[in-house]
Design a binder for these strands. Structure first.
Lengths: 111, 111
DNA sequence: TGAGTTACATACCAAAAGGTTAGTGAATTC
DNA sequence: GAATTCACTAACCTTTTGGTATGTAACTCA
């Protein structure tokens, strides 16, 4: 019971928590990350892998994830354009944690 | 590269993922859970601990978390009313995972 | 010339999430 | 009899999120 008890969950700072939620909340964000954990994909490929997402939203989410530092984007100067998305090293760091996320839902689904 | 490769993140089922996001998304949900990880609190105490949240939203979130099986509510027949909230055993099970999740933001904050 | 390809942008709209404000019931204290 | 306490409810409004539909640039190929 000391002052810098890192076990105390309520000590997690608000900015850290907010950034965390930025990354995992948002309807397709985790899905995108999970797909890209296997290999890099082009924009069009991702669209076809997650058919329920709309064009606009997918681009929006990709943009956000790039700006958060989760994804990196590579554009080739070709016509028609070619753009590939992949996970950043930081994103790879947190993959094991993201994987654990699924255990939360599992615990609460079998009531 | 076999069929039941549990390492493959993209294999996480949509219902499980959805339930997970139900629990951790929502602006104050994790905050509430973290506060209650220390001890049970009354509604009014929680309000004072998270002053930025509005009355309505706090009650809303508490209700949702109860219905998800994360919190349990005990009302005492007193006047003025006394209502206490606490984590369910299932919520205690997933506390370590929640804690890890909350640290994701840290990785992406120090750029 | 004109259709196809690809990765976007833009205008617009609907639904969901979050927030403000005011009110309620019932005993207790002034 | 009036004010206080506490845990809510209800009406209403604003902001954010998600979605549709359409347009565009620039080159290739028929």
């Amino acid at each position: 019971m000391n002052a810098n008890n890192t076990e105390n969950l309520s000590e997690i700072s608000q900015p850290v928590l907010k950034r965390t939620l930025d990354i995992i909340c948002g309807k397709w964000r985790l899905y995108i990350i999970f797909q890209l954990s296997k290999q890099d994909y082009r924009y069009g490929e991702l669209r076809r892998m997650i058919p329920e997402v709309s064009e606009k939203v997918l681009i929006q989410e990709l943009k956000t994830l790039v700006s958060l530092g989760v994804l990196q984007k590579r554009s080739y100067n070709e016509v028609p354009p070619r753009v590939e998305y992949g996970l950043t090293p930081k994103a790879r760091e947190i993959l094991p944690v993201l994987k654990e996320i699924a255990t939360i839902g599992k615990t609460f689904l079998d009531v």
